[in-house]
Design a protein around this nucleic acid. Structure first.
Length: 491
RNA sequence: CGGGGUAUAGCGCAGCCCGGUUAGCGCGCCUGCUUUGGGAGCAGGAGGUCGUAGGUUCGAAUCCUACUACCCCGACCA
């Protein structure tokens, strides 16, 4: 399969692409910019979904579904929202095709022009707030805590599998609250939830913080985000939570009567993570041998490969393996026994290694004689032979250890590539040569941020929470600053 | 939308400059035998409107023209 696989050193971008394709996660489709998520890739996404979905429900949210299409007029109700998305929406203008009178194929039937054009949702705030208007009259109707799992379309010029595709899958939460404080708290709750998911399930450390004005969601008062550092030294925004204030309530006239019988606008939030998380997960842990998955999100946690020459040997192995498999499954561990005779053991080793399966058990005639099994870790590529009777206690322990170790390794990588810089020269050195996170003073103006971006392609990724106050001078303008912000080149 | 490139078997490529009759190679695929503890070996086999349309020519994958699609680099972005 993947003998011709790029290394990270040779060509990081190529390495990522090869990985996605050869690990059978996704492929480019016939539709420009749109991908096909293959079963193995989708299984990972389904695991992510299941965990996040439970987290949302545990924090009081319910799922619902809103339309794919949004009337064009809705879209223009909130000024900055339109401005932010106008350049990348797909528009439906007609509803019928007809046979081409001049020849082959079908053409758009010009008689079937829509009275009002529809846009394909790039995000659902507008259609949702138009709907909430009818749902909310009283403080008793609040809060509204809804999430939807959906596909959205943003007409990107350049796309990369998972990281940026024209159509992508995500969840978008849209909540309505009676007070500013409550909406604000919701925004924070979700950001913490995302960080929890990233760190404890994806084993990917993230920095939480607030976005600058230029990186803010179109229509939000504040955007909070989690940022992760990828192995090539670039930052990846992995989840966002927006405090929308009363912007959408005002645009869609969503008011409620409070306890004092006064009419007030509703306070709002929205938040989302997308299939981009797949890209983050892939880049966070994988190596030059292929994908490395954290056990908690791996579709297969343990692969069992039998080594046999005869049917008798296979049956003998199967007899040993099945009870162990069952016991592990009873502990909630996903186990696959690959007893196919169409592929050789060596082929299977390479295959599952490339697909990032955390643990592999190999059992052959030698093991049958000795009552042992070979156990191999994907993350460290270590192999050892253990007594078959100790598998059921050993495996949960190892999976946990792998999960922790992946996080620790990523954290150590981030620490190694995080720098405090005080001068423009140091800043350039980090951004252009070393790669990674640069904590630097910034004068707080969009103007300076823009200039830094023009010169270096680096942006303020985030102003971290609980940021220590520290007097300093902006690396570019030299103006006074009271805290360091996180700069990096980003995906 | 600017700048560059590519289009030949499922995938990756050669052939094109210098036109010539049956268009090759590697991987993969199929069949058989031998193999199986790190991507097996041998033998046989299947698979192609050479991106599309037109032109030049006795003859076009090869030369010319137009078109289309895709890829890379820039401006936009979860």
């Amino acid at each position: 399969m993947a003998k011709d696989f790029s290394t990270r050193e040779e060509n990081y971008a190529q390495w990522y692409n090869d990985l996605v394709i050869k690990a059978d996660l996704a492929e480019n489709s016939s539709v420009r910019g749109c991908m096909v998520i293959k079963p193995y890739g989708f299984a990972i996404w389904e695991k992510m979904q299941a965990v996040l979905d439970k987290m949302f429900k545990d924090t009081g949210h319910s799922n619902a579904y809103f339309p794919l299409f949004i009337p064009k007029s809705f879209f223009s109700r909130e000024a900055s929202h339109v401005e932010g998305f106008a350049k990348e929406v797909a528009i439906v203008t007609h509803y019928r095709l007809k046979n081409d009178p001049n020849g082959s194929g079908v053409i758009v039937d010009e008689d079937a022009k829509l009275e009002e054009e529809l846009i394909v949702r790039p995000t659902s705030e507008t259609i949702i707030w138009d709907t909430y208007k009818n749902w909310i009259q009283s403080y008793r109707d609040l809060p509204v805590l809804i999430n939807q799992w959906a596909n959205v379309v943003r007409w990107e010029m350049r796309t990369r599998l998972f990281l940026r595709t024209t159509e992508f899958l995500w969840q978008e939460g849209h909540t309505a609250h009676s007070t500013r404080d409550e909406a604000f708290a919701e925004t924070k709750t979700i950001l913490d939830l995302y960080a929890d998911f990233a760190e404890n399930w994806m084993a990917m450390p993230v920095v939480k913080g607030i976005k600058t004005a230029s990186e803010r969601f179109a229509g939000a008062l504040d955007t909070y985000a989690i940022e992760a550092l990828m192995q090539d030294g670039k930052a990846l925004q992995s989840g966002t939570s927006h405090f929308l204030g009363q912007n959408f309530a005002k645009a869609f006239d969503v008011k409620f009567l409070n306890k004092e019988n006064q009419l007030e606008y509703v306070w709002a939030t929205s938040w989302g993570v997308s299939t981009r998380l797949m890209g983050a997960l892939i880049m966070a842990h994988s190596d030059d041998q292929g994908l490395v998955l954290p056990p908690k999100l791996a579709p297969i946690e343990v692969i069992i490969v039998p080594v046999f020459k005869s049917d008798e040997q296979l049956s003998a192995i199967t007899e040993k393996v099945l009870p162990v498999k069952k016991e592990l499954e009873e502990k909630g561990i996903s186990v696959k026994f690959d007893n196919r005779e169409t592929h050789k053991p060596g082929w299977k080793f390479a295959e599952y290694e490339f697909k990032g399966v955390p643990l592999r058990l190999t059992i052959g005639p030698r093991d049958l004689e000795n009552g042992t099994v070979e156990i191999a870790r994907r993350d460290t590529l270590e192999k050892k032979v253990i007594d078959i009777s100790s598998i059921v206690t050993e495996i949960p322990f190892l999976l946990e250890e792998i999960q922790c170790s992946l996080f620790e390794k990523s954290l150590a990588f981030r620490k190694k590539h995080t720098y405090n810089v005080d001068t423009w020269e140091e800043f350039l050195d980090v951004i252009e040569n070393k790669g990674g996170f640069a904590y630097a003073h910034w004068d707080g103006t969009s103007d300076t941020e823009e200039k830094i971006k023009e010169k270096t392609k680096a942006t303020v990724r985030i102003i971290p929470f609980n940021n220590p106050k520290e007097e300093g001078r902006c690396i570019l303008s030299g103006k006074p600053s009271s805290e360091r912000v996180l700069f990096a080149r980003a995906y």
